[in-house]
């Protein structure tokens, strides 16, 4: 016991450094507090607004600590508008896009990591390049495809697009995971008579489940948040996704913006993502880092 505490203590033999250390500690603590406020304050302000009475929302000066709370804005959101539909729509599009992206991306990543098909270099270079493409450059050409194939107001248009825009990151991250797997396992599987595809499905993919979760989360977040394609391809009101549906509340009345419902809509649209971040923060950090380093 005494050994353990000794090992931690004797870093600062003189009293003077200790005092300067506490000063740095105070500054450091302030920096941590500043980060927390910087990241949370705008969101918390919106949450607070969503529970305030309308007269408190437009009170001057602002009321930071309201004494009255209401669910009216949420009730209005779900009664006047099919807002639960939008939640369902977003969930459906994001989940199917994620599954499609993994189903197409994981085999491709495995092939690029292990099987070296012809043109691998070109494929990888192309993947790196398209990670930098702004979506605006694609919108007109994609809209033409959507019209020719009669996919307007069809979620397939969004699912294919979301699959494509998330494929580069999925492939890059999965490829680095596959490349790290020990090769002996695959050699042993081959000796046992597995074909490449059987081996991929039964042995390799189960081992890379963490990587699948990581890339899946990133794809889900990107698909849930996407705005410009959803705005353009889906015009039918009941089919809209959350970001588009929420953004149009503010545009619906010119004279008196419905601040309360807007705030409530923001909160409803962000809650699933806040939950995802709370549960999967390690995977998100891992995926982002791996994707960028490979890029």
């Amino acid at each position: 016991m005494s050994l353990g505490s000794n090992a931690r203590q004797p870093r600062s033999p003189h009293p003077a450094p200790t005092r300067s250390l506490t000063l740095t500690n105070i500054l450091f603590g302030l920096a941590v507090v500043a980060i927390v406020i910087f990241c949370l304050a705008p969101v918390l302000w919106q949450v607070l607004t969503s529970f305030k009475l309308t007269e408190d929302i437009i009170a001057i000066p602002n009321i930071y600590f309201p004494t009255r709370f209401t669910f009216d804005h949420y009730i209005q959101l779900f009664q006047r508008q099919p807002f639960w539909r939008y939640v369902l729509n977003s969930t459906f599009v994001a989940v199917t896009s994620t599954i499609t992206c993994l189903a197409i991306g994981a085999p491709a990543a495995y092939a690029l990591a292990r099987l070296h098909p012809r043109g691998s270099h070109w494929i990888l270079a192309g993947i790196l390049l398209v990670t930098l493409f702004p979506y605006i450059l694609l919108i007109q050409g994609l809209l033409q495809i959507v019209q020719v194939l009669h996919l307007a107001n069809n979620y397939l248009a969004l699912i294919i697009t979301y699959t494509a825009i998330n494929l580069p990151l999925t492939i890059l991250v999965m490829r680095s995971f596959f490349a790290q797997l020990p090769k002996d396992l695959e050699d042993a599987a081959r000796v046992d008579g597995y074909t490449t595809v059987q081996m991929l499905i039964r042995i390799v993919l189960p081992l890379t489940l963490p990587a699948l979760v990581t890339t899946g989360i990133l794809t889900f977040i990107a698909s849930w948040n996407e705005y410009i394609f959803a705005l353009t391809f889906i015009t039918e009101d009941t089919m809209k996704t959350i970001p588009v549906a929420a953004a149009q509340i503010s545009g619906s009345s010119t004279y008196e913006a419905p601040y309360g419902p807007i705030a409530a809509a923001t909160v409803v649209g962000t809650i699933p993502l806040i939950l995802l971040v709370l549960i999967f923060q390690r995977q998100i950090i891992q995926g982002l880092t791996a994707g960028a380093v490979k890029g």
Binding site: P42, V43, N225, P243, T266, G269, T270, I274
Partner: peptide, 11 residues
């Protein structure tokens, strides 16, 4: 992680 369109409304 939060949707940019919604964050734009917050700001």
């Amino acid at each position: 992680a939060l949707p940019t369109a919604l964050i734009a409304m917050v700001w």
